[in-house]
Amino acid sequence: MVFGQVVIGPPGSGKTTYCNGMSQFLSLIGRKVAVVNLDPANDALPYECAVNIEELIKLEDVMSQHSLGPNGGLMYCMEYLEKNIDWLESKLKPLSKDHYFLFDFPGQVELFFNHDSTKKFLTKLIKSLNLRLTAVQLIDCHLCSDPGNYVSSLLLSLSTMLHMELPHVNVLSKIDLIGSYGKLAFTLDFYTDVQDLSYLQHHLNQDPRSAKYRKLTSELCSVVEDYGLVNFTTLDIQDKESVGNLVKLIDKANGYIFSGIDASVVEYSKIAVGQADWDYNRVAAVQEKYMKDEETID
């Protein structure tokens, strides 16, 4: 089996920085990592790239040749990659024997919640290379400081989870900066655990811009709660403990944690059970470290 991560998220969520930091962390703990850049507009890579889509197609060329804007150009590039998936398979196959993959995708969210090309070529790769992938969706934690933006991020996360049909981990990235975004309406666990969203309604009503969308927003919150699928973990990519906790979660999601052991069902179940201190590390410890008491309202 071959394991890896599909790194996705809106622009500015820190995907490329994540791939750089995660590849360094995984290398330090003994994994051979291959970072695959599938963003045809990302020409300033901070990491060593094992496979680069720009060898196949470049966004700049697509835009000039077909008179497309950036969004249309990115969709064209993903469709082109789907049609030429043999190229990517040939690049990945020699690495699949002993490497862990990090797929760095573009930040255009349409590619993951309503466009089919990305899903289709990932499905082909999973079948042809026997891949076990986890989708890691990064959401900038500053969105928590605005109720409307937070609800939008919930809807984006849910839509992506349903569309991609992969093991999925949602991450509030740049958590080390959360204290600089001003007061949060609730404690951090409200946002990570996606608790009763009706409490957001009061804060949404304070914004005159959203007054005519109150009913719509309320219905969207109900949809998220009815599915009950969305929650978040937190990440400071510069903190080894934070990255290590996330790696444990991803390894359970794609099965990597079980790949190197020969154990009974009882032993497997012991490994699968979450650690008692996980919630503390995921939320309480983060709040203590990065958020001041006066920056939250009871």
Rank of each mutant, 00 (worst) to 15 (best):
M1N: 06
M1D: 08
M1Y: 08
I8M: 12
I8P: 05
G9S: 07
P10F: 13
G12M: 06
G12I: 11
S13G: 06
G14I: 08
K15E: 05
T16W: 14
T16V: 13
N20H: 13
N20V: 07
M22D: 03
Q24H: 14
F25N: 06
F25E: 07
I29Y: 11
V33G: 00
L38Y: 01
D39G: 06
A41W: 04
P46E: 08
Y47Q: 02
E48W: 00
A50V: 03
N52S: 11
E60M: 09
V62K: 03
S64A: 15
H66Q: 12
H66C: 04
S67I: 03
L68Y: 07
G69L: 05
G69Y: 13
N71K: 08
N71Q: 14
L74G: 02
M75S: 11
Y76Q: 03
Y76C: 01
L81W: 03
E82H: 14
N84M: 08
D98T: 09
H99W: 09
Y100A: 01
F101R: 00
F103K: 00
P106I: 04
G107K: 03
Q108I: 09
V109I: 15
D116I: 13
T118L: 11
T118E: 01
K119I: 00
L122Y: 03
K124I: 12
L125Y: 03
I126A: 04
L129D: 03
R132Y: 04
T134E: 00
A135R: 04
A135T: 10
Q137D: 09
L138P: 02
C141Q: 04
C141R: 05
L143V: 12
D146H: 10
G148N: 13
G148D: 06
N149E: 14
V151F: 10
V151W: 00
S152L: 06
S157W: 01
S157L: 07
S159F: 09
L162C: 02
L162I: 11
L162S: 11
H163P: 07
E165G: 08
S173T: 05
I175P: 01
D176S: 12
D176M: 11
K183Y: 09
L184M: 15
F190I: 02
F190P: 04
Y191N: 02
V194W: 08
D196V: 02
S198C: 07
Y199S: 12
L204D: 03
L204K: 04
D207F: 12
P208S: 05
R209F: 14
S210G: 00
A211G: 00
Y213E: 07
E219H: 14
C221N: 09
E225W: 10
D226F: 13
V230S: 05
N231Y: 15
F232A: 09
F232K: 01
F232M: 03
T234V: 08
D236L: 11
D236I: 07
I237W: 02
I237D: 00
I237V: 15
S242L: 01
V243N: 02
N245H: 15
V247P: 01
I250A: 06
N254D: 09
G255H: 03
I257K: 06
S259E: 04
S264N: 04
V265G: 00
K270Q: 14
A272D: 05
W278S: 13
W278K: 06
Y280L: 13
N281L: 15
R282A: 12
A284W: 10
V286A: 02
Q287P: 01
Q287L: 04
K292P: 01
E294C: 10
E295Y: 14
I297W: 14
I297Y: 14
D298I: 13
D298R: 12
D298E: 14
